[in-house]
Design a protein around this nucleic acid. Structure first.
Lengths: 216, 216
DNA sequence: TAAAAAAACTGACATCGAGTCAGTTATAGA
DNA sequence: TCTATAACTGACTCGATGTCAGTTTTTTTA
């Protein structure tokens, strides 16, 4: 079960029905696999060898590898929503809240980068998973749009088309997290957090970044 | 050969050696295919049916589908470098130059979106193509870093780690272009251009976007 | 322009991974 | 301990890939 599980809780615990136990063993095996190899190397056979069961047993629990990946995506989703909370619901200084939310995102990206990458990779090969991934991203787009429009009404954020900016900023986050943390060795999280915060902040609040640009 | 070829020059022209002709017919078939279906649906057999030759003939010209996609990537690269020129080499108002370069990028993204998407999709399934794609992006990262550092020395851009911002902004561009134009029907290019320009501009030059945010 | 050389092409084959199923084994509950 | 239910497996089919020996078509050149 290796060192790679150290950063996360294992799915397999004692006192579970055999069926649940095996399902979790498969999920654990998938995580173990994806921490060291890209999704494209994963086959049902390899996975089940790690999990210690026969290949057909896999199909007892998942319809295919993409179905399994969707399960991992759901688990990611929950954790991301949690740590992203401050900017969406917080009451204080919006810049500080934003920085905090981005910090949470970076932390999760760092802790689960290869999984995030694997889901993104896999989603381009399967219609169903692609849809799930798209919805996952769209949910964030919607949340960011709402927050931007709220703060535009308060005069905290200048007037512009909230949706296209929200989409752009969210794409920025996902692709940068995958770029920086999607494979081992992972980048240093600090500059990633700084870059994201700088870009979001200057785009939304225009602060921290006034240029010396006058005429020219 | 269809309507989809209208926006681009066909590879196949007269007076070509048979060998070159067939190779180009395959490339044309790939474009035709990718304008209407995602990469994951593409098989050598389907492609060669469109191209009008036997399946094994494909391997005369390409080692596999990823090799073919790499060829399409090279062609994209050339065109992108062209239209991106203003901000990198221009002399006038940096904000205007930047907006112009982004416009070029958006135009290419719009004209070739599905191809861009197909290359990105395919790159996650193949080591070689993944590397080519990574290098393609890294080349832009480097160019942007150089330009940012130049303008930081001139005092046009505030001091910050140019590389991480460059990487972030480039990831933003690619993923947003693919999101907006990667499949039919494509989005309206105007808000995409506006969003990109707003984000790049406020991040680098801090202009066009001063917030009413004082204390709070 | 016709024959030789070179190139492009093809049918048939081997391989690999996916997904299915009928039949067997193991588990959980009474 | 027995039985019903759930979990598992070996063996199969299928679809796509990549290769090769042999044939056809194109190009060269005499």
């Amino acid at each position: 079960m290796s060192v790679f599980l150290s950063e996360r809780k294992s799915f397999t615990t004692s006192f579970l029905k055999k069926s649940e136990w095996t399902r979790n063993a498969i999920l654990d095996s998938a995580l173990e696999f994806l921490w060291s190899q890209p999704f494209r190397e994963m086959t049902v056979a390899k996975l089940m060898t790690i999990a210690g069961a026969s290949r057909p047993a896999f199909y007892q629990y998942f319809t295919d590898l993409y179905d399994l990946m969707e399960t991992l995506l759901r688990k990611l989703e929950v954790d991301i929503l949690e740590t992203t909370d401050p900017w969406f619901d917080g009451k204080g200084d919006p810049v500080a809240m934003l920085s905090e939310s981005q910090a949470g995102l970076v932390r999760i990206g760092y802790d689960r980068g290869p999984i995030l990458r694997a889901v993104a990779d896999a989603s381009s090969s399967d219609k169903r998973l692609e849809l799930a991934w798209k919805k996952f991203l769209a949910a964030f787009d919607d949340a960011v749009v709402v927050r931007i429009e709220q703060q535009q009404q308060q005069g905290l954020i200048p007037a512009f088309d909230a949706r296209s900016i929200a989409i752009a900023l969210n794409r920025l986050d996902t692709s940068l997290l995958i770029h920086a943390f999607g494979r081992l060795p992972r980048n240093d999280p600090k500059p990633v957090h700084e870059a994201l915060t700088r870009i979001w902040t200057s785009t939304l609040y225009g602060s921290g970044n006034e240029s010396r640009l006058k005429t020219m």
